[in-house]
Design a protein around this nucleic acid. Sequence first.
DNA 1: TATGAATGAGGATTCATTCAT
DNA 2: GATGAATGAATCCTCATTCAT
Lengths: 196, 196, 196, 196
Amino acid sequence: MNKTDKRMRIIEAAIQVFAREGLVKGKIVDIAKEAGIGKGTVYEYFRSKEEIFSAIEESLMDNIFQALEKIAATSLSPAKKLEAIMNKCIYQIVAMGHGLLIVTEIWAQAGREHWHTHQPANLAGKYDRFRELIVRILRQGIETGEFRPMNEDGVATLLMAFIDGLSWQYVLLRDSKRFWEIKTEAVRSFMKGIER
Amino acid sequence: MNKTDKRMRIIEAAIQVFAREGLVKGKIVDIAKEAGIGKGTVYEYFRSKEEIFSAIEESLMDNIFQALEKIAATSLSPAKKLEAIMNKCIYQIVAMGHGLLIVTEIWAQAGREHWHTHQPANLAGKYDRFRELIVRILRQGIETGEFRPMNEDGVATLLMAFIDGLSWQYVLLRDSKRFWEIKTEAVRSFMKGIER
Amino acid sequence: MNKTDKRMRIIEAAIQVFAREGLVKGKIVDIAKEAGIGKGTVYEYFRSKEEIFSAIEESLMDNIFQALEKIAATSLSPAKKLEAIMNKCIYQIVAMGHGLLIVTEIWAQAGREHWHTHQPANLAGKYDRFRELIVRILRQGIETGEFRPMNEDGVATLLMAFIDGLSWQYVLLRDSKRFWEIKTEAVRSFMKGIER
Amino acid sequence: MNKTDKRMRIIEAAIQVFAREGLVKGKIVDIAKEAGIGKGTVYEYFRSKEEIFSAIEESLMDNIFQALEKIAATSLSPAKKLEAIMNKCIYQIVAMGHGLLIVTEIWAQAGREHWHTHQPANLAGKYDRFRELIVRILRQGIETGEFRPMNEDGVATLLMAFIDGLSWQYVLLRDSKRFWEIKTEAVRSFMKGIER
DNA sequence: TATGAATGAGGATTCATTCAT
DNA sequence: GATGAATGAATCCTCATTCAT
């Protein structure tokens, strides 16, 4: 097994552990056990616990982002693309289960640092990247006349906010039937809000 | 100063400290210092750090919830009420600043417990209480013909999701000008999505 | 209620609490509750927790010692006196129940201090007082010819050791039937050991 | 140094510290220092302070018990065996010095738990094991006609009580000359009490 | 490269004691 | 005299990280 594979395996183990225990209670030794390696070995691949956090976030975000770009590159109509993106995100979230909570905690931490250091959060960049992807699709739709004229940035933000919030609902409700009903109506409302 | 006032003062101090340091790094001794009392005194008012978390969440949520109920009780039109509620929430969030991160962390914790214990999270109850308030307004609007027929639960969830998500945007962007533009467009989109 | 009565009440409360919880886990506030007074009031009657320990020991020992002196002053034969004393001690111990454990802990503490400070333990004095009482009776018995000649000090010590040890048996066995059988045989053996 | 040796070294360090300071005042960090290791290392070998208590007791008791079984297995006459056992116990106690106080405190704690939980104390089992060893020797002596007929259980208890009690005398008197005189007479009295 | 034994900084919590009312 | 709110010293235990093997 090469270096990258093992790194990946540790990340996956870490996701399991942190999802189960939380960022703070999740111990390095447990990650090692979950990955089937020794505690010390973790430090051959990551400089610190902190670095594992970043790696997890990167991994999780990259996964989802690549999927979204694939959708954006299809020849679907803008409206269909948007729906597909929303659905993809939501499916991904459901698949992550409460692993979402990890990302939340990581972001909360990042947010706090951002607040103090006044450094533009790395996270903000990711949001922007996502937002741009949405904005592009919205503009296409406006050009084709499918969507009404709008402040594309604002609407993109609405969409992202909507996905974020929906994730929480899922974690808290976890009552799948109700969740899917809600989700369907929520998507419909959103689409209606931007149609011409 | 009576017992309740002092409890409140500790809660406020705790919010300061946790917002600055995070739930884990925020030390009891710092809370005590912030409140201008001795470390031991904190334990006269709260059994444990955990109990402070709950108290903070309760306090923060109650604050916002009472404000919303006041709005719901006015004689505004349903559409105006909804806009007022969204705005109130967002202002509140901005006012909380990154104190929002505390609530997020507390919720992440609660979510994890909920996931493991399969106990209905206390939090879910709060979401429901909020959702019901929204649903009531939506129904009024449908009756008056302002709003289109809809799955009220789904739309209410969308609204909540939108507010949750927008909070995050604020924490991460903190670029007020852009945030307010986004917010304005987002509210408009949402309202358009439900109008007749 | 006068000062002495209240002091006594606190001592009794303390015995209850310490017997239940141990010397260290037994809290001043619990003693106060048990005595039906305020925490601060305890300090009107005792300078410190330490002082309560001493008072308890004194109280418990005085009780038993007075009873023994009463027996010593009777006109029973030396052998009968000795038996009566052993029985009285044992009954007292049983009556104290695991309150004996308090005395043990107090003594262990005293023993340690004695060891370090090289001060003659106050306790040693009490042992001597008890030993002298026994020695007096043994000498009477030797004079009357009931007892064999012996090193009275050694035998008195044996008797005390025997009572101490039997107390432990009771605490540990607490199986009354077996305890009383053992006690009867033990007393018989002891008496046989000193008879002419 | 292997795992067991190190465990043993910690136990020995703990005995030193607890004997000096008492069970409660004796700090883990002091044990570590005494053992020449880091504080955290102690917890690699023992789950908690409580577990150290148990280990000490076990170690101390096993030591003495093995010695006694060796005596019991010799070809000495029953009377000589009994004397040897008493002497061995007493020498051991003297060797332990005020380390005896640790055992006392541990037992006091155990006794209290026993009292509350109504669980047969582990300690009771150890007493029984000791008692059986004595009873076996007493029966041998009765068979050979060296000892008078007796309730063997009762006499065994007397012997144990005598040893327990004598230990205390030593801790409190620590005046060796007097102690040894007393001990000699006490053993003689005991033996006389059971001879035919 | 892999390991896990060793480490010690760090923090929540307890409770005897004080003292203003 | 009686009270209990306030205090902070004291200590167990956790766990990220290091490093010798």
